[in-house]
């Protein structure tokens, strides 16, 4: 048996141990990325094998919480992919303005930079007052960072550049206060955001949303889990609701592909078709 076959077995054991001990299921994650994150963690800890990780995870909950952070945090920016936000402004916002109130779900919000970007955009379009934003992630540590809304000052230059490319017309620095080497986003941006733990792998439908944003999350899932999450989104959207994905995500090859029309091809903005019906309901396929 070669080294890679051993690694495959160890990854399976690790996933099984985490699932049985803590209930988090990584078996439908894209394995190459997951393996890379595990190996990064091994190197950081100075451990030699994945098997060495398992006993500590089993017996030390704080250690597990810490490892979990490394398994899920992705790197993001405010107004990441500025053209996406430009399309939101020109294509989606005019339609959102026809509703008396809005519910927006940001699934897999990580450390929150993109939620605040959306809040800024909604504020500038006069929609923030009548909007409730739900920001969810399965990683409590990331959620806490998101809720704090404090980011390194060094990153602000890049965030500002993105903001202007995204069509922002104000002084970006009006949206935060500088504290030492940090930038704290202003409180009014946070007032309409509810932060909550939700796991796309195991948790269910989340309210009746006008718009769901889930960017650069699906690439970490295998096809089965992608289908589960997309089905969940269809069920969680109102009639003619909007689904916004990452630049490299698409509903095109999923079980819900026929339920959506494409509003922005390159920037991955989709809208539920009238009379959209789920061909495979969540319960039947993934029970």
């Amino acid at each position: 048996m070669n080294k890679n076959d051993l690694t495959r077995i160890e990854i399976e054991l690790l996933i099984d141990a985490i699932k049985k001990r803590y209930g988090y299921d990584f078996s439908h994650y894209a394995q190459s990325s997951f393996r890379r994150r595990v190996e990064n963690r091994l190197n950081a800890l100075g451990l030699n094998t994945i098997s060495d990780l398992i006993p500590r995870l089993m017996h030390d909950e704080l250690f597990f919480e810490d490892v979990l952070v490394g398994f899920s945090i992705t790197v993001t920016e405010m107004f990441r992919d500025p053209k996406f936000y430009r399309d939101i402004r020109t294509i989606v916002i005019p339609k959102l303005k026809t509703y008396p109130y809005l519910k927006i779900w940001h699934a897999g919000c990580a450390t929150g930079e993109e939620i605040y970007s959306m809040a800024i955009l909604l504020h500038e379009e006069g929609l923030l007052e009548q909007t409730q934003i739900y920001a969810t992630d399965f990683n409590n540590t990331a959620l806490k960072t998101a809720e704090r809304g404090i980011y390194p000052l060094d990153d602000m230059e890049n965030h500002a550049k993105n903001y202007y490319e995204a069509g922002g017309a104000k002084e970006f620095s009006e949206y935060y206060r500088t504290q030492y080497k940090s930038a704290k986003l202003k409180g009014f941006l946070k007032e309409k955001i509810t932060f909550a733990n939700h796991n796309l792998v195991t948790d269910g439908v989340f309210g009746e949303m006008h718009m769901i944003i889930c960017r650069n999350v699906m690439i970490y899932f295998d096809k089965n889990l992608q289908d589960r999450a997309y089905s969940l989104f269809v069920e969680s959207l109102i009639h003619r609701g909007f689904l916004c994905l990452g630049t490299k995500d698409t509903v095109a090859f999923s079980i819900v592909s026929e339920n959506f029309e494409i509003l922005a091809k390159r920037n991955k903005i989709f809208r539920l078709l009238p009379n959209a019906k789920l061909r495979n309901r969540i319960g039947e396929k993934h029970a």
Binding site: R8, A30, I219
Partner: peptide, 14 residues
Amino acid sequence: LVEDDRTFSLSSDA
């Protein structure tokens, strides 16, 4: 990245 079933996957990790 390449997966065992000879498909691609992408990542936006650091």
